[in-house]
Design a protein around this nucleic acid. Structure first.
Length: 649
DNA sequence: AGCACGCCGACT
DNA sequence: GTCGGCGTGCTC
C-alpha cells in the first residue's frame, strides 16, 4: 500500500514553527487520522507533540520527510472546525495557532480517555428526551432557527428553579439563556454558553438542568482539575445535542453542529485570555459565528461598548428581555466622611424587617490602608515599599503587594510605632453596620470568604464587587458603596466597568426593592437609574470614537529593541487611517543600561486588521531569527487590542 | 529554542 | 596553516 502523509501542527510557541509540517505515516503506526495527537521528530531526533490536521496519500513537501514517531491517542481531539477557528483567531491576533490550541484542548488524561472510549464503544446510551418545562413566556422564539445575531440586555431579578436538592434561586438572565439553549437542542444542535466565572456558571447550570435535563448539560469548568475538564471535553466530541457551559476557553469547545453561541457578561475582564495571544472570548465567538453560521448572543445586564459598536455597525441586533422594577436612589455622602449615607440606612432598616440586604463595597479586608497615628504619613512596607493594610480587625499589618508582615513597624519620618486604619474594607464596613443595626446578623462575601447564595432570612450581606451572593427571593435593598472611589480612578473603561458591576448587584434586588447608589452623580449614575444602559454605552462609544480610543479603533502595541520597533513601524507604512503613538522608551524587565526597550502603539480601523496583523506577524518572525542574548526577551513583541496602555487615560 | 553551517582573528 | 568567534538559517 502507498504511504500516507500527515500534516501536523506542532505544539510550539515559536512563531517560526507556526505552520503545518508533513510527516510520513510509517507502516507500524496505526490510527493516524485528522485530529489525533501524535509525537513527531523536529530537527533531528528531538520529539515534539502535535495534532494531525490532515492526512493525504501524496506528499506536498519536496524536502526530506520524517516519520510520525507514534500515536499519542486515537481520539480526534482537534476537530476541523476548531482548527479553522484557532487558525483564524490566531491570525486576527497576530499570534500562533498552537497557543490558541493550548487553551482550546485540555491535557490528555489516559484514565478518563479509556473510560470514555469503552463507554462509546459499547452501550452509547441514548439521551433522554428534553423535559417538559412549565409554561413561561417564550424568550425570543425562533432566534436559533433564524440564525440571528443579537446584543442582549437582560433585565435583572431572581427566580426559583427546581433542582435535585430542592429549590434554588438564580438570576433570571440564566433562565432566559437556558431557554435559548433549548431552542438549539430542540433542533438537534449544540449550544455553547460562555460565562466569566464559576459563580455565573453555577446559576446557568441550574437553569439549564431545569430547561434541558441534567444529562444534556456539559461543564467545561476551568476550576475543575484536568481529569474533570477532559471528561467534559470528551463528552462534547460525542456530537449529541447538549448545552456546553464553561469559562472563556469554552468558546473553543468541539461542537460539530453548533446552533447557538452565547457570551454572558461580555464586558467582564475575566473573558480576556491572560495568555498569548490574549484573545477575548467575545472576539473568538465572533470569528466562530462567522465560520459556523450559528446564532450568536452577546449578553449582559449592562451593554458593553464593544457590543454596542457591533449594534451600530448592523452586525448585531439590539434586544432586551425581562422586566425588573427597582427604585434606584442616588444618595449624597454624609459630610462626616462616613461611607454609608442616611438614605441607605433607612432603606436597609426597612428592608431588614423581612429580607436580607446587600451592601456592595470596593475592597476586601478590614483596612485597605494604614497611616502613622502620630504624623499621618502613609504606612509602607520596609522591604518593597508597597502599601500596608489590615485583613481583619486586630490583625498584624501586612504589605498588600508582597504580603510581608510589618511586625515592629517604625514610622520612617517621626519614629512613631502606632498605625491607624485608612479607608474601610468589607469586614470593617460589616462591623460598623452590625453595631449600627444591632440584632441583625452580618455576613461578609469577598475573595477570602466565598459565598454563592444566602437564604431569605433578614441579614446584612457585605460583598466586594463581583462576589455578591444570590439571595433567595432577592434582596430587600441593595446599597452600592465606594462608587466615588471607583470612579476616581483614571482609566478608559472605569465608568463602563462601574456601570457593569452596579448593574450586576442591582439585578439581585427583589422586585420593587430600593437600590441606593452612594456618592455618585453624572452619566454613570444616570445609566443605573434609567431603564436601560444602552444610551450610556452609546455615549461612551461616541466619546471613544472622537478620541480614537478602543473599541472605536483597534490597537497594536509594539514592544522591543529600538531597531526592531522602528522596522515594524516602517513595514506598517503610513496612511491616513493609521496613527502611531511613540515610540517611547519603556522601563521594564528588559530595560538594560544602554539598550532600553521601545514601545509604540498603533491605532488602526477594523477593516485594516487583517493587513496589520499580517505585517506585524511577519516582523515578529523576522526578529525571532536574529540573535539575542540567552534569557533576553524576544526582540519584538506584539499585542493586538491590549487594553493596558489605555487604562491610565 | 537550539543547533549546524559558515566565513574572519590569535594560537599550538 | 588551523581552532573557534558567533551571525544566519532552519526545523517536515
Amino acid at each position: 500500500m502507498a504511504d500516507r502523509y500527515a500534516r501536523v501542527v506542532v505544539d510550539s510557541r515559536l512563531p517560526q514553527l507556526d505552520r503545518l509540517f508533513e510527516y510520513r505515516v510509517p507502516p507500524g503506526v496505526e490510527g493516524v487520522e485528522p485530529g489525533v495527537r501524535v509525537r513527531v521528530p523536529l530537527r533531528g531526533d528531538r520529539m515534539t507533540s502535535g495534532y494531525v490536521v490532515e492526512v493525504a496519500d501524496a506528499r506536498a513537501w519536496e524536502g526530506e520527510v520524517a516519520d510520525v514517531e507514534k500515536l499519542v491517542s486515537p481520539v480526534p481531539v482537534l476537530r476541523p472546525e476548531v482548527w479553522a477557528l484557532a487558525r483564524a483567531v490566531a491570525d486576527r491576533a497576530a499570534g500562533g495557532a498552537a497557543d490558541v490550541l493550548r487553551v482550546a484542548i485540555p491535557g490528555r488524561q489516559a484514565r478518563v480517555e479509556k473510560a470514555w472510549l469503552e463507554r462509546t464503544g459499547s452501550e452509547a446510551a441514548p439521551l433522554p428526551p428534553l423535559p417538559d418545562v412549565p409554561e413561561r413566556a417564550p424568550v425570543l422564539p425562533g432566534l436559533v432557527e433564524a440564525r440571528r445575531r443579537i446584543a442582549l440586555e437582560c433585565a435583572g431579578g431572581v427566580a426559583a428553579v427546581e433542582t435535585a436538592d430542592g429549590t434554588a434561586w438564580i438570576g433570571r438572565w440564566a433562565i432566559a439563556l437556558a431557554a435559548l439553549a433549548r431552542q438549539a437542542l430542540e433542533r438537534g444542535e449544540q449550544a455553547i454558553l460562555v460565562v466569566p466565572d464559576h459563580r455565573e456558571q453555577r446559576q446557568l447550570r441550574l437553569a439549564l438542568e431545569a430547561a434541558v435535563g441534567v444529562e444534556r448539560v456539559v461543564e467545561l469548568d476551568a476550576r475543575q482539575k484536568n481529569p474533570e475538564r477532559y471528561r467534559g471535553f470528551l463528552r462534547c466530541l460525542d456530537d449529541e445535542p447538549v448545552a456546553i457551559i464553561g469559562p472563556r476557553s469554552a468558546v473553543y469547545a468541539p461542537a460539530a453542529r453548533l446552533g447557538l453561541l452565547v457570551v454572558w457578561e461580555d464586558g467582564d475582564p475575566l473573558l480576556a485570555e491572560p495568555l498569548s495571544p490574549w484573545v477575548h472570548a467575545r472576539d473568538a465567538a465572533l470569528v466562530r459565528q462567522g465560520q459556523s453560521g450559528c446564532a450568536l448572543v452577546i449578553a449582559g445586564h449592562a451593554r458593553s461598548t464593544d457590543a454596542e459598536r457591533l449594534v451600530e455597525l448592523g452586525h448585531l441586533e439590539h434586544e432586551r428581555v425581562g422586566t425588573h422594577r427597582v427604585r434606584v436612589l442616588p444618595a449624597a455622602l454624609a459630610d462626616d466622611g462616613r461611607r454609608v449615607p442616611a438614605a441607605a440606612f433607612a432603606a436597609a432598616r426597612d428592608a431588614l424587617a423581612s429580607k436580607p440586604v446587600l451592601v456592595q463595597v470596593g475592597r476586601p479586608g478590614h483596612a485597605p490602608g494604614l497611616r502613622c497615628a502620630d504624623c499621618g504619613s502613609r504606612g509602607r512596607c520596609a522591604a518593597c515599599g508597597g502599601p500596608l493594610g489590615q485583613r481583619s480587625r486586630g490583625a498584624a499589618p501586612a504589605c498588600r503587594l508582597c504580603g510581608r508582615l510589618a511586625a515592629g513597624w517604625r514610622c520612617p519620618s517621626c519614629d512613631g510605632r502606632r498605625l491607624v486604619p485608612v479607608g474601610r474594607g468589607s469586614s470593617r464596613i460589616a462591623e460598623e453596620l452590625g453595631r449600627a443595626i444591632p440584632g441583625v446578623p452580618v455576613v461578609v462575601a469577598d475573595g477570602d470568604h466565598e459565598r454563592l447564595a444566602v437564604d431569605a432570612r433578614p441579614r446584612i450581606v457585605v460583598a466586594t464587587r463581583g462576589a455578591e451572593p444570590v439571595a433567595d427571593g432577592g434582596y430587600g435593598a441593595v446599597v452600592l458603596l465606594d462608587g466615588d472611589a471607583l470612579l476616581a480612578h483614571e482609566g478608559l473603561r472605569v465608568a463602563e466597568e462601574a456601570v457593569r458591576q452596579w448593574a450586576g448587584a442591582r439585578a439581585l434586588a427583589a422586585e420593587g426593592a430600593p437600590v441606593v447608589l452612594a456618592g455618585v452623580v453624572g452619566p454613570a449614575a444616570a445609566a443605573l437609574t434609567g431603564p436601560t444602559t444602552v444610551p450610556f454605552a452609546k455615549a461612551e462609544l461616541a466619546e471613544r470614537r472622537q478620541l480614537r480610543f478602543p473599541p472605536a479603533v483597534r490597537t497594536a502595541s509594539v514592544v522591543g529593541t529600538p531597531d526592531a520597533v522602528a522596522e515594524a513601524l516602517e513595514a506598517l507604512g503610513s496612511a491616513d487611517h493609521l496613527d502611531v503613538l511613540g515610540p517611547v522608551p519603556v522601563a521594564g524587565d528588559d530595560a538594560r543600561p544602554g539598550e532600553e526597550a521601545h514601545r509604540a502603539i498603533v491605532r488602526f480601523p477594523y477593516n485594516d486588521g487583517a493587513r496589520v496583523a499580517g505585517v506585524v506577524r511577519a516582523r515578529v518572525l523576522a526578529a525571532a531569527s536574529r540573535p539575542r542574548r540567552p534569557g533576553a526577551p524576544a526582540r519584538l513583541r506584539i499585542r493586538l487590542d491590549d487594553p493596558e496602555p489605555f487604562d491610565g487615560l
